[in-house]
Design a protein around this nucleic acid. Structure first.
Lengths: 161, 161
DNA sequence: GGCAATTTACTCGGATAAGGACTGTCCGAGTGTTCCAGG
DNA sequence: CCTGGAACACTCGGACAGTCCTTATCCGAGTAAATTGCC
């Protein structure tokens, strides 16, 4: 069970978009070039973000993407779920129904105990992702990324906005 | 990102094995029949449990599997990791290295900030799974499963042990 | 210089394909139990 | 009745397809800015 590489891509893209001034857009091409990933496939992932109302898009030249909300109101969970989907990582196929001793008319009132535990763990994972916003990521990055690289990257991006 | 259906299978198998008296074994065939899943493919999953020292096996007729440890010392995480592997669900491909502004000799001292957050969430998921033992699952099941079904299932299993 | 038409650059969505992972099946080798035949 | 060998039932491991998901790639349609041409 491994997350799509698209998740990594869009997280980094959002980090880049978060550093952008108001009313500026970044094109898929620029985002793909900056991260060294295939432009057209990255586009698919960004479309998911767009559908989830995390980013906004403008058509035409000088078009592209920008964040649809303040960075403090976008969580990691929003982004991950936009790409991976909201359905739990554990699917219960109710194999207890195959129990040969089970009478045909038996109706399970409660969800399977095994599934409940797995879903709780899934919720713990999502809850952790929900607690981290884009704003806090930017804070962390500002501390971790060397100042000169930060400055050069910023200029590189602004030249293409 | 969805867990293998094998995970569901082996969790239910472990629940069944947990109800077994000491020194009794259940064959793959019996376990597969009880849960209505393909015998040979279930066998693959059980081999993983065997490698992880969660279950023990005996060859020959009247052979099969039994738990290798007390139910209180087997966690959901043990079982899930035996089937799914121990590697984190998020893999960091270090796409920040593709940053065109990055100097060639630049060496990243810290792991990627994005990856750290994702790994924290992964750990929260694993931590939750680690907190649930087979013993507590059996307790829950004893409460949730109707008494007559529990009794009949127990007899069905014991007839094949 | 001002306005309309054309070109251009971009997003969006669908179609398509390669590769890998998950799911499932089959078979041979090894092992321990059970059963049967011969003494 | 006792003992040795054959038959049997099971696990283990490898080999092998089928199907779905991931990872792309390509192209046409639509849109808005930029450019060009014309008055």
């Amino acid at each position: 069970m491994i997350l799509k590489s698209q998740v990594e891509w869009v997280l980094h893209c959002c980090a880049l978009l978060a550093g952008l001034p108001e009313n500026h857009y970044l094109s898929t091409k620029t985002l793909a070039e900056f991260h060294g990933v295939p432009k057209e496939y990255l586009s698919k992932a960004l479309q998911n973000l767009s559908q989830a109302a995390i980013v906004e898009t403008t058509l035409g030249p000088s078009g592209g993407y920008r964040l649809a909300r303040p960075t403090s109101e976008i969580t990691f969970l929003d982004i991950v779920e936009a790409v991976e989907g909201k359905s739990p990582t554990f699917v219960c196929n109710n194999i207890r129904e195959n129990n040969p001793c089970r009478s045909a008319d038996h109706c399970d009132t409660k969800p399977c105990s095994v599934a409940r535990i797995m879903w709780d763990a899934d919720e713990a994972w999502r809850s952790k992702l929900r607690s981290v916003t884009l704003a806090s990521l930017v804070e962390t990055l500002a501390k971790d990324v060397p100042a000169d690289l930060w400055k050069k990257s910023s200029e590189w991006v602004m030249a293409r906005t």
